[in-house]
Write a protein that binds this DNA or RNA. Structure first.
Length: 267
DNA sequence: AGCTATTTTAGCCCCAATAC
DNA sequence: GTATTGGGGCTAAAATAGCT
């Protein structure tokens, strides 16, 4: 697990969790340092001056790294109620949006850079008021749409996730630590339908399957890749090392470090 | 297919024991 | 000192059954 460092809260408008479920659209701009976003299959690296939109109703996690001891980022929540207000106010034309990516890169522009600069000015003076936050976010949307009009199709889509291929989704996303209800929602199903479909596909209950899958991956990472148990358990979707260790032993008859040591000796 | 009530279980929290 | 393991208690979450 990469070290996560805290940033000056003055630059952070709203924090998103370092992993799991993305509940709203988020705009992420890296001022200094590196932010790496993971969507279940690939990584997107954002460096100074780069930005993206993390899409709502997706699973993702991110890692932050300092650069020359510094890390500054701007994260703005583009929540649905705000976007609805914006949409009603400006009657934006909605262009078609094709990408299915979780993290959509935003084109660099001088306009965007100076906008970020203007935020810096405001936030360094203390807490921002609600109306100000509304205006500044509206400004951001206008800038984004000027450069990438197609983003309207993403931002102003207020629908809920459609029914998608369950097997594919689960195999891709099992390392995300979210509950069954969330998995069901994200695959466009009720809990009942989710569990029924799940049983059909995997012949197993979702909970058991998830844990086994994570443990198998852990076994692989430790035995084949020589990774440390304490470095992987979070990225595999376990919350505590204690429980990871316990269930690992229950499954394989040895603790994760036993396996680690075994590998060391045979190497 | 999708609720809801009921039963069952997993796993988080906390912490002690152990290793190092 | 730090890192890892493991266990008991408890509760939220999951599984199940039964219903519409």
């Amino acid at each position: 697990m990469m070290k996560v460092t805290n940033v000056n809260p003055a630059y952070v408008i709203d924090e998103i969790s370092s992993q799991h479920f993305i509940d709203e659209h988020y705009f992420i701009y890296v001022v200094k340092g590196i932010v790496v976003l993971y969507d279940g299959s690939k990584y997107l690296e954002l460096r100074s001056g780069q930005s993206c939109i993390a899409r709502k109703n997706r699973l993702g996690r991110y890692y932050k790294m300092r650069e020359d001891g510094e890390l500054e980022k701007v994260i703005l929540t583009l929540d649905e109620s705000f976007l609805r207000r914006f949409y009603n106010k400006y009657k934006t034309t909605i262009a078609k949006f094709d990408s299915t990516e979780t993290c959509i890169p935003v084109n660099n522009s001088e306009l965007l850079d100076s906008y970020i600069g203007s935020l810096h000015q405001i936030y360094s003076r203390g807490k921002i008021s609600e109306p100000f936050s509304e205006i500044k976010r509206e400004e951001l949307i206008l800038i984004l749409l000027q450069n990438q009009p197609e983003l309207a199709g993403l931002l102003f889509d207020f629908g809920i996730p459609a029914k998608i291929n369950l097997e594919e989704f689960m195999v891709r996303n099992y390392t995300f630590n979210v509950n069954i209800e969330r998995f069901a929602f994200l695959t466009g199903r009720s809990i009942s339908a989710f569990k029924r479909d799940f049983r059909h596909i995997f012949n197993e209950t979702p909970g058991r399957w998830l844990v086994l899958k994570r443990l198998q991956e852990a076994y692989f990472l430790i035995e084949q890749k020589g990774m440390k148990p304490s470095d992987i358990y979070i990225d595999l979707g376990f919350e505590t090392l204690s429980h990871f260790s316990f269930s690992f032993k229950k499954q394989f008859g040895m603790t994760p470090t036993n396996l680690s040591d075994k590998r060391q000796r045979s190497a």
